[in-house]
Design a protein around this nucleic acid. Sequence first.
RNA 1: GUCCCCAUCGUCUAGUUGGGCCUAGGACACCGGCCUUUCACGCCGGCAACAGGGGUUCAAAUCCCCUUGGGGACGCCA
Length: 430
Amino acid sequence: SFVLRIEDTDFKRSTAESTDQILKAMEWLGFDWDEGPIYQSERLDIYRSYAQKLVDEKKAFWCECSPEKVEASRQKALKEKRNPRYDGTCRNKGLGPGSSRVLRFVSEDTGTTSFDDIIKGKITVNNNELDDLVLLRTDGMPTYNFTVAVDDATMGITHVIRGDDHVNNTPRQIQIYEALGFETPRFAHVPMIMGPDKTKLSKRHGATSAIAYKDMGYLPEALMNYLARLSWSHGDQEIFSLEELIKFFDIKDVGKSAAVFDMEKLLWLNHHYIMEGDPSKIGYLLGEAASQKGYDIQGGSYLKQVVCDVRKRTKTLEEMVEYSGFYFTYKEPDETLKKKFLTPDMEEIFDALITQIQDLDFSDLSGIEDVFRQVIEQFDIPFKKIAQPVRISLTGKKASPGIFEVVFTLGKERVIERLQKAIDYIKENT
RNA sequence: GUCCCCAUCGUCUAGUUGGGCCUAGGACACCGGCCUUUCACGCCGGCAACAGGGGUUCAAAUCCCCUUGGGGACGCCA
């Protein structure tokens, strides 16, 4: 059972937009949850009652130390090369609740806390490393380490799988589980994903939310496949469908070390899925992306044909939009290209092409190939001689899909129109 | 600084549990060639790693220790 829980106990960070982004990303990646979303901000009474229980059992205490004071002692400890932790000033003051007071957990002073991580193996820390963490803030809102322990226990969570950066939270949470009399779940800490500079992936490495990849023209199956293969593998297999991922994935096969995010490999996978995907479906996505860029998009079957023409050459939908623009809007070639390829001798050749194309039935590629063959025979020139001038005239670029495909997809009307424009240019410049 | 964790090609990784089959395999990227109407795709080939040092053993990428390097955490963030 898949329960989606939104951990939004920090008013400063949790906004409608931030949770919306999570929901959108889940949807895009194809995740579908059975329960929820459950918002922690709507369960405050539950956390407060458990907090009260801890107070009653003397496992938590109210603290009046100001944030400034706590921060100062932290800095001092750091300077003296000690582990910075709360000094326990208010632990035995027997304070009650108050407006600028926080509730702190009485952590163990001696002994060790350890757990058997499914990925990392046994992890042990000395309890004197752990300080009396804040359970309730001055505004009464509970903190993460507290809420997850309460929720995981009361919601019947058996396995906690999360990022490596949480390993040091785990002993604290275990102490909370124990203080509350809960059974502790199993933990699995998956390695981090790092940026090219080998530090934790963050905003400065570029895109961080899944939606950002959508916007850059990646397919969800590509992102999913890529991410799954970080710190995990199934022999030498690189390509996994969602079904295979579900079938083959085992948390026990996850490696222990962090992985560096490699955009090149993601790109390769994305290209793979663009090639494998149903052209109509990719065409639909291309249409969406192209409209966003201001192109006037016509029907689906045209988009499908465009996709078939260009997909070998583009690795993202964004690139595809950029590359296939000429299919939608005529783009004039650069002056230098026109000078080089639209030479006076092309005029009669283009004329001949137009004449032949006019009578051609655009049912398949071979008819178009025949037209070009006839024209090069008629003028006794190599195909090479006309390929580039035609390409320039039709696409405005020196690189494009094969000439025959371009002519076929563009259709009779556009081809003649564009060739005519080329002829006009030649006439004007002769 | 303190604590925790990690360590195979530039990158993702196989191999490590139960040492020999590893003159270390695959993939991305890169380089070269072929194909070719451009650009690609495709195909063929190449470069490239067990961090270092000690042990244990007939035998170590695989087990143990140390060193070094890297990461993470140290919040009234999650």
